[in-house]
Amino acid sequence: MIRHALLVLAVTIGVPAHADPSQNPVEVLKELINSVDSAYLTQSDQNLMMMEDNPALWTVEEGKALFHAQRGPKNVSLETCDFGMGPGKLEGAYAAMPRYFKDTGKVMDLETRLVHCMTTIQGFPADDPAVKQRHGSDTDHMKLQSYITAQSNGMPWNPLMDHPLEKAMRDAGEVIFYRRAGSLDMSCQTCHGTTGKRIRASVLPDVNVPQEWTKAISWPAFRVGHQETRSSQHRLRGCYWQMRQAGPVAGSPATIAVLSFWTDMARGQPAILPDMKR
């Protein structure tokens, strides 16, 4: 009962009255910009202007059609897929991921949960392009992820940390975040541990500034330089490539641990979904 009361309280206080997934994500970003002095958030006026018509908003629409379409060998939609809030309940579901799922006994991020539902509910084989292709605006994955995550737009990140595995993965993710390795002795901290620093011309987000970090972890985002909508897992792979460490396997436990930590570090800040990045 106390728990329930706290939850109600948290929801009342935590969610701004205006939290509305249908709001243009650029408005969420503008409110953040007004709340904090951040070179990272304000580095591109051009992106801010373009974000009104973010191409990722089309990816969201395509994902909506795909989510509700009857597909796969079993010819069913994804409407019975449980992303943590109950079958088919998407509002705010992504803001609470990664999370523990009883049916698999694992902490899962959105991408692995989606793979789980596509293979079990819709019956897609694991090597079907619908499941296997993860990158690019035209893939089923980017469409579906964009649609599902957009239902958490403007909502505060709130990974649960109720189950012992959720806490264990988050804490291991923190160790991995600060773990220096590879040819260049880098860790995530090298680029994301101080405020307002640049790699060449790009201002980097600081993990210790939640208002910056929420934008950093708001994926899918349309990457202007790639002209594609990109995912959290794609960002992670790029970072490991740049750090000269081993290539991470999408959906693997170490990647989910890092995502658990990085989501926790944006706790309470509104998600910008979909976002637009350089």
Binding site: A172, I176, R179, Y240, Q245, A246, G247, P248, V249, S252, P253, A254, T255, A257
Partner: peptide
């Protein structure tokens, strides 16, 4: 996770 779980 890094060395034994097939994550990399």
């Amino acid at each position: 996770l890094i060395l034994e779980s097939g994550s990399f």
